[in-house]
Measured scan of single mutants.
Amino acid sequence: MSIQHFRVALIPFFAAFCLPVFAHPETLVKVKDAEDQLGARVGYIELDLNSGKILESFRPEERFPMMSTFKVLLCGAVLSRVDAGQEQLGRRIHYSQNDLVEYSPVTEKHLTDGMTVRELCSAAITMSDNTAANLLLTTIGGPKELTAFLHNMGDHVTRLDRWEPELNEAIPNDERDTTMPAAMATTLRKLLTGELLTLASRQQLIDWMEADKVAGPLLRSALPAGWFIADKSGAGERGSRGIIAALGPDGKPSRIVVIYTTGSQATMDERNRQIAEIGASLIKHW
C-alpha cells in the first residue's frame, strides 16, 4: 500500500482519535458579512469528516447552483462504474471539434489522439474542462443518470439537468442544476469515506481534487503551510461562485467545507476574496 493510499485508508482512524471539535460562531459572522459585502445569498456548511456531524452552517438547506462543483460527483459516478466493471479508466475516447464547448483548455489539445477516461476526469476536476465533463456525462448516460446515481446514494436534493455550459445559467428560483450545502457536503463525505467506492477509487477521487489547479484564489489562499486540501470550485452566471473541499491540518483532511453564493453584482475577484476570507476565519478558529 502506498503512503497516499495509507493516508486515505486511515482518515477515519486518525479522526477518531482527534480531540473533540467545537464550532466557532466567528466564522458564521464572516459568512454573514460576506453576504453584506456581496449583496447576495451565501450558503455555508462545515462537517466533521469522521462523524458527519454538522459543526457550523448557514442557509444549509437553500438551493444554490452547483456550477462546476458537480464534476466531482460526476467522476465519482464514473469511478463507481469502474468498480462495477462497467468502465475502464484506460479506455480512450475520441471526439471532434464539434464536441468542444466553451472553456476546454485540455480537451482542445487532444482532438487528434483523444483522451482516456482517467485523463478526462483529471481534466474535468483539476482544470474544470467543460468538454471533458460533457464527454464523461455521455459515458454514464447524461445528466439524468448522474441525478439517479445521487438518488441511489441517498441524495434526493442534488440534481443535474443540463450539460456544460448551460448548467451554469443560475436563474433565480430555478431548481435545475442545483444542490443544497448540506446535501453536497453529505454526498461528498460519502464519496470520500464511505463504502460506495473502493479504496482505490476513493484515493483516485481525492487525488484529482488535491491536484486542483484553478481554485488557488479561494480556500487555498488562506491555508497555512502543512495543511491538506482537496477541492473543486465552480463559477456561473449572475454572480455565482462555489467551492467544495476536504481539508485539515497535519497533512490530512478532517472536515468537509461547502460554500456557495449566487445573485451578486460583485466582480469575480471580490467573490473570490470573500470566500478566501471565510476560509481564513475557519482556519483561525479551527
Rank of each mutant, 00 (worst) to 15 (best):
L55P: 03
F64C: 00
N134I: 04
T112S: 13
T178S: 10
D99A: 10
N134A: 01
G43T: 00
R63E: 06
I278G: 00
A200L: 11
T158A: 05
R92G: 06
E102G: 10
S57T: 11
T158C: 04
H151N: 15
V258W: 03
I206G: 09
A77R: 09
L111W: 11
V117P: 05
G85M: 10
S80M: 12
E46T: 10
G239D: 00
S104M: 02
E164N: 03
S128T: 04
Q37D: 12
F64R: 00
T147Q: 10
N168M: 00
S254E: 14
T138L: 14
D161A: 06
S281Q: 13
H156K: 13
D161L: 00
A245V: 04
N50F: 11
V101N: 08
N168W: 04
L219Q: 04
D231F: 01
Y95V: 08
Q97E: 14
C75A: 10
T179M: 06
T178E: 03
D99R: 07
V72I: 09
T112G: 15
E145F: 11
R271A: 10
V78R: 02
P25G: 08
N152Y: 12
R159W: 06
I275N: 04
R255K: 12
V29H: 14
M180E: 12
I243H: 04
E169C: 09
K71F: 01
L146N: 03
S51Q: 09
V214I: 07
A235Y: 00
R238M: 10
A230M: 07
L120G: 03
R91I: 05
L218P: 03
C75K: 01
C121V: 02
D207L: 13
E164I: 02
M153R: 07
A245N: 01
L205W: 04
L73D: 01
L219H: 03
N98R: 14
I140C: 07
A182K: 15
G263D: 10
S281A: 13
K144A: 12
P253W: 08
G43Q: 00
Q86L: 12
D33V: 12
I140R: 03
E164V: 01
G242D: 02
E270W: 08
T138Q: 14
A132W: 03
G39T: 10
A211Q: 15
D207E: 15
A246Y: 12
I125S: 01
G226D: 14
L192Y: 08
G52V: 04
T267A: 12
G154H: 08
N152A: 14
F64P: 01
I140D: 00
D155C: 00
G76W: 05
L136C: 04
E237K: 15
E62M: 09
H94Y: 11
Q204S: 10
E270I: 12
V72P: 13
L38F: 09
N168S: 08
T158D: 01
V258L: 06
A77T: 10
L150I: 12
L120W: 00
N134M: 03
R41K: 14
G52C: 03
T139V: 14
I259T: 05
M209L: 08
Q37A: 14
G43S: 06
D33R: 14
R241F: 01
K232Y: 02
T138G: 13
T261K: 07
S281C: 11
T267L: 10
L188V: 11
M115R: 05
D113G: 11
T178M: 04
A132H: 03
V72A: 08
E164W: 00
V257C: 09
S104G: 06
T147S: 11
Y103W: 13
E166H: 15
Q204F: 08
V106G: 07
K30F: 03
G234E: 04
S240R: 00
W286C: 00
L196P: 13
G279Q: 02
D212Q: 08
F228W: 10
K144E: 12
S233T: 12
M66C: 06
T69W: 00
L55H: 08
A124I: 03
A200E: 14
A183W: 08
R41C: 06
A211I: 08
Q88F: 13
G52F: 06
A148H: 12
L167N: 04
P253Q: 09
F70A: 11
A148T: 13
T107F: 00
D33P: 03
M67Y: 01
T107S: 12
P249N: 09
A185F: 01
V72M: 06
E61I: 10
K71R: 01
E108I: 13
E87P: 03
V214W: 06
L135E: 06
R41H: 15
H94K: 12
S254Q: 14
H110Y: 15
E169S: 12
Y260E: 00
Q265G: 14
L199N: 11
Q86I: 14
I283F: 10
L192E: 00
T186W: 15
V101Q: 09
D155Q: 00
E166M: 15
I140L: 15
Q37R: 15
E56Y: 05
D113M: 10
V31A: 08
S254K: 12
L167Q: 04
T186A: 14
M184A: 06
P181I: 05
N50L: 13
L247T: 07
A34M: 15
Y44V: 06
L167I: 13
L111G: 07
A123V: 06
A235E: 03
L111T: 11
I93H: 04
M66N: 00
M268A: 08
E61Q: 15
S128L: 00
N134V: 00
L247F: 05
F149P: 01
